[in-house]
């Protein structure tokens, strides 16, 4: 039996069908929007689902026309494959706001519970978006490698490439099951450790998939921008701030 890839097929048992980015009813659907329509549509849909929120000093990436949290400062722009995203930093209380290091060595600024819950909900939404973007990147990589060959074998059929694809599929499945855990009885939509695990799994897999593009993924183009967007969304929103010491004592290194 041939193991060659002919064309992508949709499994009717798992596909939810085309998703309308303007009618997203749950965070899980953000994944489909991200995969099919890209990051701008997905973050716009997330902002329609949950208020944009970030704890003091934390960063969020938003499409140009999505308003940032009140008092946030613009700190950068990310050129995604799908348009620009603006990087906003939520206001830090007091004068220490300008000093980046002050929140690093000290305790995170106090935030009320409502902001914490909203911040966590936003991060979980971003994790769903990243899951869909990782799938998008993987599909593009497969598309490219179907058209290339090494030693007469189509690159997508090389065993080490297949292993990367299998690991990517496993990562996407794990992310979904972790993010989809019922939140009953918990203040936050997912525990900090769970979100951190999702982030780590997606980070590792998206880097491996990005490498499948070879040097073409290093030229400033669609794949490079998509990979960078996935990376920076993870950097900004991938982990819940638990306090630098996490209950342990800080010591000089």
């Amino acid at each position: 039996m041939s193991t060659d890839v002919l064309a992508a097929r949709t499994d009717p048992r798992t596909s939810r069908g085309p998703v309308d980015p303007d009618a997203v009813a749950s965070p899980a659907e953000l994944r489909d929007v991200a995969r099919e329509h890209g990051v701008v549509a997905a973050l716009t849909a997330l902002a329609a689902l949950h208020p944009v929120a970030a704890l003091p000093g934390e960063c969020v990436l938003l499409p140009d026309d999505v308003p940032p949290p009140a008092g946030a400062a613009r700190v950068g722009v990310v050129a995604s494959d799908d348009g620009a995203l603006v990087v906003w930093r939520a206001a830090r209380p007091g004068a220490a706001a300008a000093d980046g290091a002050s929140t690093v060595d000290g305790e995170p600024p106090a935030a009320d519970d409502a902001v914490r819950v909203a911040d966590a909900a936003w991060r979980v939404g971003v994790a769903w978006v990243r899951t869909g973007l990782c799938e998008r990147l993987t599909e593009q990589a497969v598309e490219r490698l179907r058209g290339r060959s090494v030693g007469g074998t189509t690159t997508v059929n090389l065993a080490p490439v297949r292993l990367v694809l299998a690991d990517a599929a496993l990562a996407h499945l794990e992310a979904q099951s972790l993010l989809g855990r019922p939140a009953a009885g918990r203040a936050a939509p997912v525990p900090a450790a769970t979100l951190a695990r999702v982030t780590a799994v997606l980070d590792r897999s998206s880097r491996a998939v990005h490498n499948l593009f070879g040097a073409s993924g290093y030229v400033d183009g669609e794949a490079a921008r998509l990979a960078r967007t996935i990376d920076l969304l993870g950097h900004a929103s991938g982990t819940l701030p638990t306090g630098p010491a996490g209950g342990r004592e800080e010591q000089h290194a």
């Binding site: 960063c59 950068g76 980046g100 929140t103 690093v104 950097h235 701030p241």
Partner: peptide, 23 residues
């Protein structure tokens, strides 16, 4: 970068450059 706090990739562009050079 995460050891230098949220948003370190923008506040410490040299670290962001290192991340981009490795691929």
């Amino acid at each position: 970068p995460p050891l230098l706090g949220p948003g370190a990739r923008w506040e410490h562009p040299y670290l962001d450059k290192l991340v981009r050079d490795v691929p």
